[in-house]
Design a protein around this nucleic acid. Sequence first.
DNA 1: GTCTATACACTGATAGAC
DNA 2: GTCTATCAGTGTATAGAC
Lengths: 217, 217
Amino acid sequence: MTSTIRPLKKKKVRQENEKIILDAAEKVFSEAGYGGATMQLIADVAGLPKANLHYYFPTKESLYRQVVQNIFNVWLVAAEVFDSATGPAEGLGAYIDAKMEISRRHPAGSKVWASEVMHRAPIIHDYLETALVDWTNDRIKVMQGWVEAGLMDPIDPRHLLYMIWATTQHYADFNHQIETLNHAQPLSDKQWQAAKRNIKRIILKGIGVPESELSRL
Amino acid sequence: MTSTIRPLKKKKVRQENEKIILDAAEKVFSEAGYGGATMQLIADVAGLPKANLHYYFPTKESLYRQVVQNIFNVWLVAAEVFDSATGPAEGLGAYIDAKMEISRRHPAGSKVWASEVMHRAPIIHDYLETALVDWTNDRIKVMQGWVEAGLMDPIDPRHLLYMIWATTQHYADFNHQIETLNHAQPLSDKQWQAAKRNIKRIILKGIGVPESELSRL
DNA sequence: GTCTATACACTGATAGAC
DNA sequence: GTCTATCAGTGTATAGAC
């Protein structure tokens, strides 16, 4: 009896503790960078002894790697709205909304990702070369199709994609600068809505979506 | 005699060594982050003993602060093209070109700045609150004037500015990702030109600059 | 102004009692 | 699975000879 229950119990404890540690690690890594973060500080934030971290994650690097992989998955899931669209106004509009929502809800994750890429992705280099390259090439083909169908101007989809990534993630990665320029206040609900509306309008109009489709942003 | 020459000589030595150290520090800080960078590594890159660094810059933080301040000055100088313009096509076009050129020539500086802001600007917090706030508010007024003169659509200049910052700096801060998506190659001259053209076209058309003015980008 | 040697604090990681 | 005690290595910074 106990032999069938105990393992489940133990697995649940492990799952919960890993979640607590990963949340604390994401926060600390985003605030201090990889080199500036210490296992001691992550342990304090998680409310656990430092040795426990090494029990669940053998090394600092393995813990960090898990944090980055989790963030990568959030990006991928959010990108699914891109696919079920019939054209740029719908597809890119929904994609921008989804990415802005992530920037608002998970700025720490976005910062860890940005920091990792800025330092030439020493830990998740393989992810960039496989998953990201494949995903990007697929979306570029979709946008190329929209160009050929006359749904948008003949611009280079690659630079459009970079612009969307850069702008949406800027609201997470540079949130401190944005708050400083907003009278030291976080953006309100209305300001986030305005940000989304302005971004979508400029980009969609900029690639040739007719004004009639812009009114319902 | 010697009393008037010696001091000049010494000052020149100091100036040269500080320049060597600052260049090495910018490179190391951008690649490893503040916490990940070590005085030993900076000394190795500069080709000097570690103790010499502490002679010219008493602490690691003082050296870092100087690096960030230097970058800030580069931004400010580059922004001057914004001012002598008569409208958005000319002013924003030149500003985007200038910022893209910085991203191309000084990616390390842009990365140090990004990293500093991402970590809530612990070192140059005062700069954000004074110089950056003032500069930003001035440019917003200029753009607001363009809106009222009917030279561009009634969009919020603040979000337009963030979009320009985000997109142009993305080509520096995320250059590793961009290179990975470019068959592991740095962007060529032609690709940089194409990037500038695409960005300027999308943004300027997006804010309502007539097609007739876009053709000469 | 330069450089070697070193002080002192803190880091990631582990051993071993519970 | 938890936690205290501790080790070996490395970091910033400095003292002092040259």
